[in-house]
Amino acid sequence: MITYAIYFTFSCFGAALLMNLYKIATAKGVGDKVLALDTMVINAIALMILYGLSLGTEVFFEAAMIIAMLGFVSTVAYARFLLRGNIIE
């Protein structure tokens, strides 16, 4: 039962990643692209945890945590660059 649920969730988040990629390629404004990149990071975290769940290991939690932190910092840096023209004044 869990196996099929994991397959279903894998395909959902995989399709979500593809839609984000399409949005990054076709979005008109820069803000939308940054938003799509941020969503992509969150979906990637979900995929990593799912993979760890399906293998039964805990190795992926640290990687997911690091990716979450990097995604947050990079999104804030992008938004700040759009607002101010530089990141650290």
Partner: peptide
């Protein structure tokens, strides 16, 4: 798992 998959799909 299924609920979260649906929510992730709907979000994107």
């Amino acid at each position: 798992l299924i609920v979260s998959g649906i929510f992730g799909f709907v979000g994107s």
